[in-house]
Amino acid sequence: MKDLDYNKIMVPNISGRYVTYDHINDFLNSLPDTFKVDVVGESVRKEPITCVTFGNGPNKILMWSQMHGNESTTTKAVIDLFSLLSNDAGDVSHISRSCTLKIIPILNPDGARDYTRFNANEVDLNRDAQNLSQPESLVLKKVFDDFKPNYCFNLHDQRTIFNVGETNKPATVSFLAPAFDQERNNSPSRMLSMQLIAAMNEEMQKEIPGQVGRYDDGFNANCVGDAFQMRETPTVLFESGHYPDDYNRNKTRALIFKSILKAIHVISKNSINDYTVTQYLSIPENGKQFVDILVINPDYKENKITKTKIVPIHYKEVLQNGEILFEPQVHVFDKVPNEIFGHKTLNCNDENDILYLKQNGLMHLL
């Protein structure tokens, strides 16, 4: 991986936060014969759901992205993975011989089109693992049952609120080995998930030291990762988070791509036992202490007087004319943390910061 030139692999015409099948179909249809591209089902609105298969090795890895339609960073990362695998040389040949990859780039096409977490029936597919009430849930279950994977990668985005532990570093990438029972015990499959994450964390620490978090492992049998872990299939949750000044998540896209590739290499080379559960447990848990903009000293003389010493501002992502706009609004914490961090901090005692607030239409929030 150290010789990998990501800039030559990344697919530049698939970009931004808004990604639907309209954006990726031409690329998928242009893949060489080493890939098998199949329609494996339909969404609520009858939009086709595509699955891409690569390789014919014994290590079977199933991945799916955009289970939540507004979480597209990992979709772009798997598109970049396809780009790499299109180059039939070196480690790519080894991957094709040792692994079979089966990847659903967008599981929730309707949610992707509407840029929402939910499907067209307003159901969260990641809470439908037991009821299987939605066509998209049934598609994933059938692919899982037919393929019988050795590993599953559940690919998501996470909000900008997350920090690593109690530090002021953003959780740019987070991982989780989902629980399989209420007590969050370990099992052989869960421990393999942990070891695989330890390998990816080792790689990520070279790129973003201190910016890898461990997602909350509270058990919920309705979540797909937990449900697959209950079936003794090692499952890893990937969460693409915020990197400073990267709201389009281009940096995070590259990091997720490299994490997935590292995991595939570890599986293909059977080196998972080089990594330990203890290494996984050393990854700090995510906190929820970030806001997009933290305004301090907001008692600015031209604005209404506020009794608070800070104003936390969070961006709401809004789809408009095929683009995602970031609309600022005052953030309300579920539980106010002891310390709040801002991806950007503005001081109302600073004339330049006041100018920024005015130019960006933020004064009314103070």
Rank of each mutant, 00 (worst) to 15 (best):
E183A: 15
N59A: 13
F82M: 11
P170Q: 05
R45G: 04
I324Q: 11
I354K: 13
Q130P: 04
M1I: 13
F326H: 14
S193W: 02
D114S: 15
V212N: 08
S282C: 02
V39S: 08
T276P: 10
L31Q: 02
N352Y: 04
H343M: 08
H314Q: 13
I103K: 00
H68F: 07
R159E: 12
A227P: 06
T308E: 14
N248L: 15
D226V: 07
T278A: 12
S96N: 00
G241Y: 05
D226M: 11
Y21L: 08
M191Q: 12
P48A: 08
F54K: 01
E302T: 12
D216H: 10
I305D: 04
E42W: 03
K206V: 09
Y21I: 10
E136I: 08
V266S: 04
G111L: 01
F82N: 05
L261R: 00
T252P: 03
L237A: 10
E183V: 14
K335R: 05
V173M: 05
C152V: 13
N126R: 09
Q130T: 14
S193N: 06
I324K: 10
P105Q: 00
D217G: 08
V332N: 08
K358S: 15
S96A: 09
Q182I: 14
Y356P: 02
Y18S: 06
N297T: 11
I24R: 03
K344F: 01
K335N: 03
